[in-house]
């Protein structure tokens, strides 16, 4: 396990990469909304699609979510071992 400095935004992950959610930055409304969708610290996410433009697709807790790039930048993750 690496230290906290290895945190990176979800939007930087490539398709096929898996990671663990560590932190959510952003307003209370945003945090509550994505938390209810399963994006809470400790959750495992897999990036399914990350095109150069437009929203990314992730898999979380068995469901698929499309997230705007702005939103995906506010989710900080750590590579899962």
């Amino acid at each position: 396990m690496e230290a906290a400095n290895s945190l990176k935004p979800l939007v930087d992950l490539k398709a096929g990469e898996k990671a663990i959610v560590k932190e959510l930055s952003g307003g209370k409304g945003f945090v509550a909304r994505v938390a209810s969708l399963g994006l809470v610290p400790g959750a495992e996410v897999e990036v399914i699609r990350n095109p150069q433009h437009g929203p990314i697709i992730i898999r979380i807790k068995g469901s698929y979510l499309a997230l705007g790039r702005g939103e995906a930048a506010k989710v900080l993750v750590e590579d899962s071992a």
């Binding site: 698929y64 499309a66 997230l67």
Partner: peptide, 11 residues
């Protein structure tokens, strides 16, 4: 201001 885009893609 960008509109947030958070949408489930159902199975």
């Amino acid at each position: 201001e960008r509109l947030p885009f958070i949408m489930e893609l159902p199975l």
